[in-house]
Design a protein around this nucleic acid. Structure first.
Lengths: 116, 116
DNA sequence: TTCGATGTTTCACGAACATCGAACGTAGGA
DNA sequence: TCCTACGTTCGATGTTCGTGAAACATCGAA
């Protein structure tokens, strides 16, 4: 559970971001984090095994979409909206809007949320 | 060489578009087509075998990013900018801007072009 | 120190992908 | 009719991806 690697803002690449957003589960995770609130790992709900969820969160983290923070044994995830806006202006807005309209990643939610 | 399938505008999905744009060669192809001009297959220059180029063009076509038209034994490719704009407003603009800045897919060009 | 909770990593597997060369099918020209 | 140019499709190969089960690592509590 060592501290994970996060790419610098300048290291974020378009193609990696696109690849990260090519899976509905990951788009769902981004949607859950879109409000800017940090979420606890255990709060997240997705119809996959926890190892798979861990894998998806890692892909998002490696692509520079999210930032993970550790606190004791818990960890918290947040969307790197400002870095993304600086790097690819407008991208997240466009993607989130499209994802909302099509309701992509609806299977993903938070504990107590609609999809919980 | 039968007529290829093109998804309807409404059938274009965000995740498929993202997946299509997760490869530098394909981003390069989209950049080449970004000016709206239709391009001949043989005009396209990419550092891959023609079967591989055919594959990439197929991925773009299947995702709804491009439209292919046949004329005799030749075929012509064009970006479906209007369909994409209607489906995911602002997406292509954002992606093309980012791709230009980072010069993604620079290896792709047209006969007689800079990367030819 | 022992136990339990929380994520991460490893391993294994089938599916999908990127790639190439070769074979193929189609349309035009000789 | 035969030949050629143009893309597509097929077969093969190696890589990456999504997935889950199981083992592992870390921290807090008892």
């Amino acid at each position: 559970m060592r501290q994970a690697h996060h790419p610098e803002q300048a290291e974020i690449t378009l193609t990696e971001v696109m690849a990260a957003l090519s899976d509905p589960i990951r788009v769902g995770l981004v949607r859950v984090l879109a409000d800017g609130h940090e979420r606890g790992w255990g709060e997240l709900r997705a119809p996959v095994a926890k190892s798979t969820l861990s894998h998806h969160l890692r892909v998002l983290r490696d692509a520079g979409l999210t930032r993970t923070r550790q606190e004791g044994t818990r960890c918290y995830v947040a969307l790197r909206r400002e870095d993304l806006q600086a790097r690819f202006p407008g991208l997240m807005h466009v993607v989130l809007t499209a994802a909302e309209i099509d309701d992509i990643g609806r299977q993903v939610g938070v504990k107590g949320g609609l999809a919980g």
